[in-house]
Amino acid sequence: MDKIPILRMGPFLLVTIQIDLYDRLALNLETDLINMVHKTGARGVLIDISAVSIVDSFMGRILGNIASMTRVLDAETVVVGMQPAVAITLIELGLSLHGVHTALDVERGMALLQTKHSLDDEMAGDDADDTE
């Protein structure tokens, strides 16, 4: 059975989706990813969907679920590289993926996770100091 590889990069996990997902594969990814976050104590998850040409409501729901689930485990999820046609379709479908962070590409996604991560650390290190 196909499996989507999950790469570990420091405190973050990186997933690149290269193929069109069918339901079982997407559900497996959700489970694998959550297990991996739990096991490694990752602080962020980056999902690159630049090669994905279709995101329907099922896939959208999986992405939303992953974001909510990782948040419970104290990790942020960033979805990067969504194609314009996919974004327009999702909006028309009525899915705006609230609660999922987004970035243009992997590099910016990583930078976003980095800032959120260091912000967290600062907050933890000095509670009195409000950096916002």
């Binding site: 969504m82 314009p84 974004a87 909006i91 028309e92 993926l97 243009l104």
Partner: peptide
Amino acid sequence: IKTVSATRLMGA
């Protein structure tokens, strides 16, 4: 609002 949401989905 749609346009803004779509831009946000792209990460901008």
